[in-house]
Amino acid sequence: MSVTALTLAAALATTAPAAAAMPQGEALTRQIAENDTRLFRAVFEGCDPRALPDLLTPGYRMIHDKDGLAIADRAAFVASMERQCAARAPGGDNAGYRNRRQLVPGSRTIRPMGDWGALEEASHIFFEWNAKESRWDMVGGARYMHVWQWMPTEARFRLSESLSYDHGAAAP
């Protein structure tokens, strides 16, 4: 091999991102749980659409039992959240609205899907702030499945698909 070829090979080796192996066991569970928390905090309590692109694949989509294909891609989700968060801001159509999501303890199951990613299944309940009574009112619940894709060159997971189903009213 010539000196130029060796130099080029060395340069490529140092600039190409190393592919990381997908975590297993507790590390897998911990990373998915952390991403789940970040995702739902951005959508509910935090109302922070800027946090979403980092968590989602560009082709992310959400299928909902009430709305069918509710979100066709990452850009649509971010745009939707930007509109919702602007409406919650002072002067917005829904100024002061607050909601939160709570994972049902013990409901989460995370399964590796080969070395491609992981499937997360869980249940959660939803609350809205009742300003008149100064309390959180439970308003419903649902189940969900998330397909998390392992990004080896980023050494992390990104959400590629959500299935949201079994939506129902709050328990009495």
Rank of each mutant, 00 (worst) to 15 (best):
M1Y: 10
T4V: 15
A5R: 10
A5C: 05
L8I: 11
A10Y: 06
T14H: 06
T15E: 09
A16Y: 10
A16T: 15
P17R: 11
P17D: 06
A20E: 10
M22C: 09
M22F: 03
P23N: 01
P23L: 00
L28C: 02
L28N: 03
T29R: 12
R30H: 05
R38T: 11
F40S: 03
F40H: 15
A42M: 10
V43C: 07
E45Q: 13
G46S: 08
R50L: 09
R50I: 03
P53I: 06
L55P: 06
G59R: 09
R61L: 15
M62W: 04
H64C: 05
I71P: 03
I71F: 09
A76N: 06
V78C: 05
A79K: 12
R83Y: 00
Q84T: 10
Q84V: 08
R88E: 01
R88V: 00
P90Q: 07
G92T: 04
N94C: 02
A95Y: 01
G96N: 05
Y97G: 04
N99Q: 10
R100F: 05
R101I: 08
R101Q: 11
L103G: 08
L103Y: 06
V104T: 12
G106S: 13
G106K: 14
S107N: 11
I110E: 07
R111I: 05
L119N: 05
E121I: 12
H124T: 07
W136A: 00
A142Y: 07
H146E: 09
H146N: 13
Q149T: 12
Q149L: 13
P152L: 03
D166H: 11
G168H: 13
A171W: 06
